[in-house]
Computed example of a mutant assay.
Amino acid sequence: MTDQTTAGDPAESAEPAESVKPAERIAGLRPAYQADLAAGLERFFEPRRTDCPWCGARELSTRLRTTDLLQHKPGRFVLDRCERCGHTFQNPRLSAQGLEFYYRDFYDGLGEKKLGDTFGGRTKMYRGRAESMLPHDPAPKTWLDVGTGHGHFCAAAREVLPGTVFDGLDFTDGVELAEREGRVERGYRGDFPDLASELTARYDVVSMFHYLEHSTDPDRELRAARETVRPGGHLLIEVPDPESRYARLLGRWWLPWLQPQHLHLVPVANLRERLTSLGFTVVAEQHAEPHDPVDLLAGVWLALDHAAPRDDAPWLPRPPGALRRTLRGTLLVAGIPALVVATLLDRFAVRPLSHRLGVSNAYRLVARRD
């Protein structure tokens, strides 16, 4: 996540962002984006690594080459795989400027309402995440959700654990919104490792749901978690599974690649080993439960959206004309039957067998700090 103020923020504008028409908001953002692009994309990337950031081995192979299939911002991205430990990582990795550019208007700004509505409607999934802690600590007093976004998980988890105080931490101003809306008791905004020293041994549970893959240094995040969890407390981690068969079968259309945001995709054996070395005992490993049955639907949608003419966006030099808008609408409508079939397969054919088929798109670990 990036710490930034975007155009259209109510604090910076004479009128609330939601009262401004989308086309006007996009037009207002276009000059800044075009200036960024005119300066070149090279500054958005660090030098390419020749060794694995997880184990240091130099036996690397290219696993994926792709583009930004969600926002369609310019750029090409490469994921390399370590042949020794299996770690998959973005190479070259985004620089600080690149992270700011590619995150901008995804979780906040233009994308805030859309993503907020999406995350807000996933109550059943959030409850399942909270319930995964019940066998290990049925009544934790304090819980910190790292990468909490707008705090929707904490709001749903409170129904499962009504006696637990939930705090949230995030880079973006979404955590401040979460505190104002009462979804978290306390919202911390900033870098987790930088804040860990003031949170030492404060929490019975620290959770990282689809957070670690976004971090520039996963090991540093895990060390911060160890500092923050009290002895005997638990760390709950959920991340995409790079060993899922869907990752190979769907290729660039596999949603959890999520380029360019996902910087590290860690095989479960690697994460178990690292947690053990940090003084944790892994007490549960789940694959079927965290699987999100959207792989085929998302794959079809990404392919359709990629083939269709672009929708308006401030990183485009100009808005699309009427003909391109019509062509886009026609293609997407024509793809509805494929989207329906993909949804049915995801939910009713694949989901019950996801772990047995090896296509679970995520895994979850519960680890106790010794």
Rank of each mutant, 00 (worst) to 15 (best):
T5S: 14
P10C: 10
S13R: 11
E18D: 14
E18F: 15
V20A: 09
K21M: 15
A23G: 07
E24S: 14
A27L: 12
G28K: 15
Y33C: 08
D36F: 10
A39P: 00
A39Y: 02
F45W: 01
P47L: 06
T50F: 01
D51W: 05
C55W: 07
R63A: 15
G86R: 09
N91Y: 08
R93A: 15
G109N: 07
G109C: 12
G109Y: 08
E112R: 14
D117E: 15
G120Q: 09
R122A: 12
R127C: 07
E131W: 10
L134N: 04
P135V: 05
H136K: 06
D137C: 13
P140F: 05
L144G: 01
H152E: 08
H152P: 00
H152M: 02
H152W: 11
A156Y: 04
R158M: 03
L161N: 03
V165F: 07
G174V: 04
L177Q: 12
E179I: 08
E181I: 10
G182S: 11
E185G: 11
R186G: 02
Y188P: 02
F192A: 06
P193T: 03
P193R: 02
D194Y: 00
Y203S: 01
D204A: 08
V206W: 02
S207Q: 03
D217A: 13
R223H: 10
A225D: 01
R226E: 12
G232C: 13
H234E: 11
E238K: 13
P240C: 13
D241F: 13
S244P: 12
W253A: 13
W253F: 15
W254Q: 07
L255P: 01
W257L: 05
P260M: 08
H262F: 05
L271N: 00
E273D: 09
L275C: 00
T276I: 01
L278F: 04
F280K: 01
V282A: 02
V282F: 06
A284G: 06
L296G: 01
W301V: 05
W301H: 03
A303F: 06
R310H: 10
W315I: 03
P317L: 03
A322D: 02
A322P: 01
R325C: 06
G335Q: 12
P352I: 14
R356K: 15
Y363Q: 04
R364K: 12
V366N: 04
R368E: 10
